[in-house]
Amino acid sequence: MRWYVSIGAVLVAGVLAGGDVAGVAAPSPQNQFSSQLSSFAPGRQSADKEATPSVDVELILAVDVSYSMDMDELAIQREGYAQAIVSREFLQALKSGPNGKIAVTYFEWAASSDQKIIIPWRVIDGPETADAVANEIMKTPIRRASRTSISGAINFAMPLFDENPYRGLRRVIDISGDGPNNNGGPVVVARDAAIEKGIVINGLPIMVKEPSYSTMDIDNLDFYYEDCVIGGPGAFVVTIKDREKFKEAIRTKLLLEVAGRTPERPVVPAVAASKEPRVSCLIGEKIWQDRWGR
């Protein structure tokens, strides 16, 4: 069975407390694996163990900048990531890991051929490095672009791990977005390719606006992310449904990822998982085809 929990029910390395800021969904059975979080890519880890520095997690932040995101949302999203990285809770979670540091890269995405790296691979190991990354995020001009290709973002992210000079116990792609895939290859193909490489994909579906035909929003974007986007051991979704909780939800997700935690205490049962996705994984492509015929 699949579960939702409120953020107030999640404990992340003893540092997270608060009210209901968003829904956190644990992975569906079809996205669970028997391997443990600490055993990602054992061949690569053993080969690289002595040759490269070690971090607790290699974290890719893949951020949606498609036109369906309004300028206010884009600004709040930027501020949310920057503020989360320098927060006291984040720095405490950082120190809870065996190495006390992570490697992070941050890129923005829209269409399948449109990805822009804002922060190349950096190590965050304390307040100074966290401040440097946050400042660089904030000083980059905000942009918007056409189409939404989650598959393109995943395909762009995967080889970035090979370029990272640091090797982590875990490899995570963190995807935020406010709509389904409507460009590039099918999202499930990209997702499955990442899972085969031992990569975990977590999701931040943004649902602060009423679904609109003009923006290609859909109902139940959280279900779409759960069934079609996330995957790998411990994968989870944090859903943002309240604009006022936007930044807090981003911080919650980063805390969970840095501490290597998933929701531990299910409190509200959701729909039981089935073999078929609750929302078609090709719904975005279908809407685009019905509207523009291409």
Rank of each mutant, 00 (worst) to 15 (best):
N155H: 09
P159N: 12
N164Y: 06
S176Q: 04
W109Y: 14
S151Y: 09
P127N: 06
S176C: 06
S146P: 07
K116R: 15
G184E: 06
I175P: 05
K116Q: 15
A134M: 05
F161I: 03
K139V: 05
I117Q: 13
G152A: 12
A134N: 00
W121E: 02
E163M: 09
P186M: 04
G185L: 11
N155M: 11
G179K: 00
A134R: 01
A153G: 10
G152T: 08
V188C: 00
F107N: 06
E108W: 13
E128L: 00
D125E: 10
G185T: 11
R144W: 13
D174C: 08
P180M: 14
V187Y: 03
V189G: 03
I118L: 13
G184F: 07
M138G: 04
A130G: 02
I142C: 11
E108D: 15
A132G: 00
K116F: 14
N182D: 12
E128V: 02
V189E: 14
S146I: 15
D114F: 00
I175E: 00
I154W: 04
I124L: 13
A153F: 05
F107H: 02
N183S: 13
P120T: 14
I137W: 01
V123D: 10
R170W: 12
A111Q: 08
V189A: 11
D125Q: 03
A110R: 02
P159D: 09
A190Q: 05
A190W: 02
P127D: 10
D125G: 04
A157Q: 12
A132E: 03
I154L: 13
R147C: 00
A110Y: 06
G179V: 02
D125P: 01
A132F: 05
A145S: 14
R147Y: 08
P127Q: 13
D174G: 05
T148H: 03
P127G: 01
R122Y: 06
D131Y: 03
S113P: 00
K116V: 13
W109H: 07
K116P: 04
I154T: 09
V189C: 00
E136V: 03
I154H: 01
G126V: 07
S146A: 13
S151W: 11
R144S: 15
